[in-house]
Design a protein around this nucleic acid. Structure first.
Lengths: 201, 201
DNA sequence: GGTTAATGTTAACAAAGTTAACATAAGAAA
DNA sequence: TTTCTTATGTTAACTTTGTTAACATTAACC
């Protein structure tokens, strides 16, 4: 009863890994369980991946790619610079809220170190580059002075940081979005909030 | 050779746990290793803590308390509202950068669930309350209209989010602070950055 | 002193990551 | 086709970890 070769075990493992991850987070993902659920021997995954980190890296790469896509769509939604920043921030947070486990995977402790998986680093860099390019309007960089470029870069970091912070704090339950408002308008409100104090103080 | 009772094993375990955590992060902390390093049997920790999560919770509580202290000091450093927000943000990020592992412990996946450890929840709430009180100037709340209070609350969230995002991204190596500038001025610059676009665009 | 609770200990268990040793399939080379 | 090599699977082992049970010792209190 040679039930050897199952077809493309690698992809099935990846898909299954992502399912588990979505439902239970990285804590619930064990190689052995993954193998069992996939209907393959407990050592089989090692033929296709560099151990557990290898699988996590592979999933993380896929997630980064989808994340980058969402960001690109958001960036393309408008030509206006401010609106674009807003759209990006909203998309950033939305992705985190819709796929908290995926978001945690690519930003959390369980993500394998970037410098050990070049493709992972590449996927990450690519996603962030979408952000940076959109926010700093790199296509006009040639016209910028050095200080202008520096300022633009800092604005990018500031916007990114805020979106990231909101995303983290919301999926962590530390910020609870008001129930009487939809998420995106809440997020947009936060993103637009200045630190400058209003007139009457 | 009855080397029973060692004194207060609980505190020694806690201290040792924090040492390990500082050097290797939560990944490197195993109960058995902790026990061995402490010079006690491998099951002894269970007499003092509710398993691994119990130890992590205890350490996290201590960290939250120190974190809250730092924030309080920063909040008390100035009377000016804007400056206070800045000081808080800077202190927030500084804590994260100086104690990345501790910061990750209290905000990351390895932190035991707040609703399972009431004291942990309390410690967390306390720290965040320092933030919120300082930023919304709760002492003047009586004079605020409802919308003013809501605005102030949102400003608090926005400022917190940005500081949190900066902290996360910096300790994750995703934002690299410029080498030719000291950290706090870099952070202050980011915190002060508005999303509004400069005049010439 | 004797009882009881707190605090240690050792021994066992299941689950996990990983590797080694072996088996089988598929494809290239003869 | 036959053979050699490589890719892919399998089982079995080893180590580490979290956790609990069963038992030992100390301290505290009547």
């Amino acid at each position: 009863m040679g039930k050897y070769h199952h077809g493309d075990v690698r992809n099935v493992l990846l898909q299954q890994a992502e399912n588990i991850l979505t439902e239970e987070g990285p804590a619930g993902l064990s190689l052995r369980r993954l193998a069992r659920l996939t209907g393959v021997s407990e050592a089989a995954p090692y033929r296709h991946f560099d151990g557990k980190d290898g699988i996590l890296a592979a999933v993380a790469i896929a997630v980064f790619e989808r994340f980058a896509e969402k960001l690109e769509v958001a960036a393309a939604s408008t030509e206006n610079h401010e609106e674009r920043i807003m759209a990006l921030g909203a998309a950033y947070v939305q992705f985190a809220v819709e796929h908290p486990q995926h978001f945690r995977l690519i930003f959390g402790r369980e993500r394998p170190p970037l410098d050990q998986y070049p493709e992972l680093r590449e996927a990450a860099d690519n996603a962030f580059e979408v952000l940076q390019r959109a926010v700093t309007s790199l296509d006009r960089k040639a016209e910028m002075t050095l200080t202008e470029a520096a300022t633009a870069y800092n604005r990018a970091l500031a916007a990114w940081s805020r979106a990231h912070g909101i995303a983290m704090l919301v999926i962590d339950g530390l910020i609870v979005p008001p129930a009487d408002q939809d998420l995106s308008s809440f997020v947009l409100g936060l993103l637009a909030e200045d630190l400058t104090i209003p007139a009457g103080a």
